[in-house]
Design a protein around this nucleic acid. Structure first.
Lengths: 254, 254
DNA sequence: TAGCTGTAATATGTCGGAGTAATAAGGAGA
DNA sequence: TCTCCTTATTACTCCGACATATTACAGCTA
């Protein structure tokens, strides 16, 4: 009985040491197993086509009941990572079937050593989507939206990005922009990528000080959106994304 | 025992009559339940904050075992639609927590009457992403990519878009473009949206003939990509998306 | 050698019970 | 009367065993 607890705790500790982020997927037993298997697949420990050893065998190996294992597999199946068929076992699906934009999948991808190529892909997508989002925001923002952004910007100035409060303000700022687009699909996408990218940013923050004061660049985005200048907003946001890419790239090559 | 079979069959029939698409999520019992609940949530039958009646009660109501119900809930949880907590029951999460870009969620959203606003959002996102994808494809396509596109285009010409073979060729053409971008994240996103949008297109196809020959527009995209002209590729793809939007809009207002 | 059929292996579906955590209600103290 | 704490209910979580359905593989037949 104590064995399962040990496993669960081990899986949570392996999440990267982010204690407060451990709640959520890692809380329940099957969530911990899903996390364990998910990271193993995303890290290439299981290649597409590989079979996860039989249901019964695996459950015994992990020292958990079949129900818990089954529910974990169910989660992975829902995200397109695996497929199970009678007799054939549970196979890892080819990569193009994976829901790479699922927040949890993204988190698994960044749990270990993030794949350089994948990070590049993600930033490329971000460079496409974020400026377009800023453009829409400039066209659709209301007075309330502007106020939210202004407040967040002020908070960012007060605390720096070195503090947790400052980073929270940064998130608020970007969320306010996203909300101004009035586009749920775009919002979902951008939030997923943003969260994942921020994971790498945390690495960067720990590694060294910021290479450049990011506040002025944020102000430029804000001014353009407040003024309703769509083209300028897109351009300014593009600069912001490029900056983040540079920082991340230099942090990863170290 | 026969009761459950009846339920499962009913859920599959409700999928829109696409017999060959019924395999996959709707095949297993818990998949059918997930589909049933998923469409109910996406269609607004359950509003965010609503609680699905207790596990035991619900399982009895649906005449399935608690295990099957639980696995279905697990799928919904993995997609961010619901959250279960002891004593509180299973609640529908606020809309901004939903993974709207998940292929299955998208399918559920389009299973019943698609929400006009959501379709607009999706096309807006598509208008952002697809031209950018075409731009990248023009920069990175290889000789093999070009051959694949050419073949698909020829097949589209042979069969028309009115036939299933023609539509398959259309999909091949777009997939070849996506593959040329060498960006897995972009590929995943575009494939999800494309599949969902094609669902609405099927409605259109049934409703009336195509308003305009789409081949020349496809050829323009192909020529630009083959020539490596990024700007022209993006522009031509933009035209294609706009066209699809027009068709869908007129089909939905009928 | 090719095609078919039977069997064994494996996943799926089901059930009921024990355990646990969180909420809500009720009582005690200030 | 208000606040805090205790208690009890409620619903999820996990478990293991059993029954069923499907499939892959091998062995057999033509």
């Amino acid at each position: 009985m104590a064995e399962e607890r040990r496993l669960l705790k081990g899986a949570e500790e392996g999440e990267g040491g982010a204690s407060k982020e451990a709640r959520g997927p890692g809380r329940r037993l099957h969530g911990a197993i899903a996390h364990k298997l998910g990271t193993a697949i995303l890290s290439g420990q299981y290649a597409p086509g590989d079979v996860l050893s039989g249901e019964v065998a695996f459950a015994e190996e992990l020292e958990v009941s079949r129900s818990a294992y089954r529910e974990a597999i169910q989660v992975l199946t829902a995200k397109g990572l695996v497929e199970s068929r009678p007799k054939a076992g549970t196979r890892v699906l080819p990569r193009n079937r994976w829901n790479l934009l699922d927040p949890e999948v993204l988190a698994w991808a960044f749990a270990g050593e993030p794949d350089v190529q994948f990070v590049r892909d993600l930033f490329e997508l971000r460079a496409i989507v974020e400026p377009a989002a800023a453009r829409l925001a400039a066209q659709r923002r209301t007075r309330e939206d502007i106020k939210l952004m202004k407040d967040a910007l002020a908070a960012m100035r007060r605390h720096t990005l070195a503090t947790e409060a400052g980073r929270a303000a940064d998130r608020d700022f970007h969320n306010a922009i996203l909300n101004s687009t009035r586009n749920d699909a775009l919002q979902t996408l951008s939030a997923s990528i943003g969260a994942a990218v921020n994971w790498t940013t945390q690495f960067k923050q720990r590694a060294r000080a910021l290479p450049r004061n990011p506040i002025p660049d944020h102000v430029r985005v804000f001014d353009a959106i407040a003024a309703g200048d769509a083209a300028a907003a897109a351009e300014a946001m593009g600069v912001l994304v490029d900056l983040a890419l540079e920082d991340t790239a230099s942090a990863m090559t170290r």
